[in-house]
Design a protein around this nucleic acid. Structure first.
Lengths: 112, 112
DNA sequence: CCGGATCCACTTAGATACTG
DNA sequence: CAGTATCTAAGTGGATCCGG
């Protein structure tokens, strides 16, 4: 999960903050819990994920709902606005995938 | 120029760094000189513009050519890769324009 | 004209430890 | 389970002054 190809840090296109785009991708298939999100986003710390989620929530892209019950259960879900951003994200991913080689080449050429 | 609507810092979509998207927009109509770029990007300092240009160049999005002659004359121009990024940028701009009100509302609701 | 050099404020990401 | 508190390191944007 989160193969090195799509929203890598090499792409000049960014959605929200560093993890924002990937969080949105994780929510594409429906609501997810906090700990469920940590799995695919391997290596993200709780604090940074919280930060990213708060930003996305503030921008109206996701919603946070605390489920009732004895044990804690919080779910994050894309809002309509958040889902609408999947379209530009797809375009950005397609562009990055298509020009991946050129991006790599440019970086290598600049490093020399 | 650089009306508050398109690539404002309120949009969650970013191209390259803070000014990168706007620089690319400025180069859309053909090559421009350093000082020509500073006009529409009102308020940008020389250092920051240089920084942004270097990053875009490193990523292969623009090219820098020093013109011959007694007085200094440097031109920046979009590469093929840079021009290809206009498509995702248009999509991002359209998305931002379309959902501008929702973005504003979300921020206001979060501020309260 | 086109920057580089220096310094500074602010933000961001992350590591680590702790909590209702 | 779903975070918070604290600290640190690194990066980014900008102001100001200097230079070929």
């Amino acid at each position: 999960m989160f193969d090195p190809v799509c929203p890598s840090d090499l792409s000049p296109i960014r959605f929200a903050d560093k993890w924002g785009g990937m969080v949105i991708r994780c929510l594409e298939g429906g609501p997810r819990r906090f700990s469920e999100l940590r799995v695919p986003l391997r290596g993200i710390t709780a604090k940074v994920l919280t930060q990213s989620l708060r930003t996305l929530e503030r921008d109206g892209l996701i919603s946070r709902t605390e489920m009732a019950g004895p044990i804690r259960h919080v779910e994050y879900e894309l809002t309509a606005l958040g889902r609408s951003m999947l379209a530009p994200m797809d375009v950005a991913c397609a562009w990055t995938a298509e020009h991946w080689d050129e991006l790599i080449d440019a970086r290598e050429a600049a490093a020399s």
